[in-house]
Amino acid sequence: MSIVNSPDGNSPEDERPFEDDRTAERPSIGRALQQARIEAGLTVDDVSNATRVRIAIIHAIEQGDFAPCGGDVYARGHIRTLARAVQTDPVPLLAQYDAEHGGRPAPTPAAPLFEAERIRPERRGPNWTAAMVAAIVAVVGFVGITVVKGGDGDDDAKTQVAEGSTPTAKKSATPLSKPSKPADPKPEPSDSAIAAAPQDKVTVRVSAPDGRSWISAKDHNGRMLFDGLLEQGKSKTFQDSSKINLILGDAGAIELYVNGKKIDDDFQPGAVERLTYTKGDPQVG
């Protein structure tokens, strides 16, 4: 068998077109996107932050796996978004995807959506016009009734004046109340009050007419009757079956009345006094 050479020295096999070679050398969609991203100086994190596409999906697309996209429609959308982010033309990549995955997905028919929208009942708002008309009619009716009643009242008043009757003046509903006088202050206990004091108990009254003083009072069981500051002009009365124990923080500001009788002890200002009073005649225990 002889071999026929072409005039330029090449065999016929060397003259076959280079279409298949270019097709075989064409990179995959994922590889093309990855190369474009690297040439743009972007990382996967940069692309994810710019497109809001998850990093795992970007890695899968660059590896040629479109299953995480969730369908052809979403895959085409991710391809378009990633191509724009890495500054490459998405059109040839989309065409390549359609060729490799059975063509472009058919558009969703609009007729069922239109029919569903058409049969949806229309929501109507409140009929404000009818409400306003009803309100106006009610107001007009109320005004008319008021005018009629007012006219009848005027006629009755005119008739009463014509007959010579004198209209009676209205009395004030409530008379002005006079300010109550302040209650008279209770008189201080005196020697004559001894008879009023219970004979079977001890009664001690502590007053602070000239200043204030801290006082403490306990009964015969040690139970606290009072422990605090007695303000100027205030007084406290304590009573027990057998004994009252007192502590006066500023005895000079205190006046004491035991069983109705004033104690004339010479208490000094600022002095602390510890006192005990029992039944019977006033005496310091």
Score class of each variant (00 low, 15 high):
G41A: 11
G41Q: 04
L42F: 12
T43S: 15
D45H: 03
D46W: 01
V47M: 05
S48P: 00
S48R: 03
T51Y: 03
T51D: 07
R54A: 15
I55D: 14
A56L: 04
A56N: 04
H59P: 00
H59E: 05
H59I: 13
A60I: 02
I61Y: 00
G64D: 12
F66S: 07
F66E: 02
P68G: 02
C69S: 11
G71Y: 02
D72G: 04
D72F: 04
Y74W: 09
A75F: 07
A75C: 08
R76V: 12
R76G: 09
H78E: 11
I79W: 02
I79M: 12
R80T: 06
T81H: 08
A83E: 01
A83M: 05
A85N: 05
V86E: 03
V86A: 11
T88W: 02
D89V: 03
D89H: 08
P92C: 10
P92I: 01
A95P: 01
Q96H: 13
Q96C: 02
E100P: 00
R104Q: 14
P105V: 07
A106G: 13
A106N: 08
A106L: 15
P107W: 15
P107T: 06
P107I: 08
T108L: 14
T108G: 05
P112T: 14
E115R: 05
E115T: 05
A116V: 01
E117Y: 05
R118S: 07
R120C: 09
R120W: 08
P121N: 02
R123H: 13
P126R: 10
W128D: 10
T129M: 10
A130R: 11
A130K: 07
A131I: 13
M132W: 01
A135P: 03
V137S: 04
A138I: 15
A138R: 01
F142A: 13
V143A: 15
V143R: 09
T146F: 01
G150E: 13
D152Y: 04
G153E: 09
D155V: 06
D155S: 04
K158D: 15
T159P: 01
Q160P: 00
A162Y: 09
G164W: 02
G164V: 09
G164D: 02
S165D: 12
T166M: 10
P167F: 15
T168Y: 07
